[in-house]
Design a protein around this nucleic acid. Sequence first.
DNA 1: CCCTAAATGAAAAGGCTTTTCAATAAGAGA
DNA 2: TCTCTTATTGAAAAGCCTTTTCATTTAGGG
Lengths: 141, 141
Amino acid sequence: MTDFDTLAGQWRAEGHKLTQPRRAILKTLLAAARPLSPAEILERGQTFYADLGLVTVYRTLEILEAMGLARPVHLADGCHGYALSTPGHTHHVVCDRCHAVVEIVGCALGDFLDSVAERTGYTITGHWLEISGLCPECQQK
Amino acid sequence: MTDFDTLAGQWRAEGHKLTQPRRAILKTLLAAARPLSPAEILERGQTFYADLGLVTVYRTLEILEAMGLARPVHLADGCHGYALSTPGHTHHVVCDRCHAVVEIVGCALGDFLDSVAERTGYTITGHWLEISGLCPECQQK
DNA sequence: CCCTAAATGAAAAGGCTTTTCAATAAGAGA
DNA sequence: TCTCTTATTGAAAAGCCTTTTCATTTAGGG
Ligand SMILES: [Mn+2]
Ligand SMILES: [Mn+2]
Ligand SMILES: [Zn+2]
Ligand SMILES: [Zn+2]
């Protein structure tokens, strides 16, 4: 969770132009409390830039994902959409009810993965972990 | 990894008919060393039953998934296809190179998930974990 | 064997994503 | 500022992949 200027700076540092449509998409992702599908990003993004097109949403997400600044969030029941993320190895905790998402930076799977390596003979190179739960607000209802 | 008769028995126990197309799909999944896409299951399945149709592949996978006997396997780079699985909570280790898959039955994330709950305020209800690595054969190359 | 409900596959419909392409706009350099 | 170049844009078309529809077939209990 950064602010617009930080994100914009990282964007430009890669040599990408910061156009109106792209600004609208960044603002939309920054304002979102949960992962958004491309169609949802389009809809919300048009409040910032009315002529925004869906193709640009896809193209911008592709760049953000390559930069490690956004990531698809999906659980067993499918893809929940895209959320901003910190570059590097992180995980997401998603609320089952309202889909609010929190990013987890550390991960302590070392011992477990060691045992997996031992049991299977595989050399472990990476993993994908998504956690589901109930956010504090939804627990009250 | 069960045998055909065990799988067939579980299938019938749910009251489903065991048709030729379905037999072909089960045999295909049993013979697969890696997750297969619906199209791949169709292609391989037609060696067992020539008239197999793609729609039946989708419908059969849907039932298998609901029974917990098959599961979509996907990593960060997308869905790798469907693999047979043990009902209940398990994980998959997928080879980066040849996609060979091994199922992991135990999982020791308890402490880590407790710390996530504490840090985020979420009540944790589940998780989705896929592990990638290099299988013993691919390590030699 | 029959009989019936479940299952099947072709074709159509539906969705989502990517490609194409002519028009536009960012922003480096003058 | 003003130009100029090239990246970027959005509409439309194309391309998947998945689901629905429906007339026909088949499994398997009786
Ligand atoms: Mn991790
Ligand atoms: Mn687990
Ligand atoms: Zn919630
Ligand atoms: Zn391998």
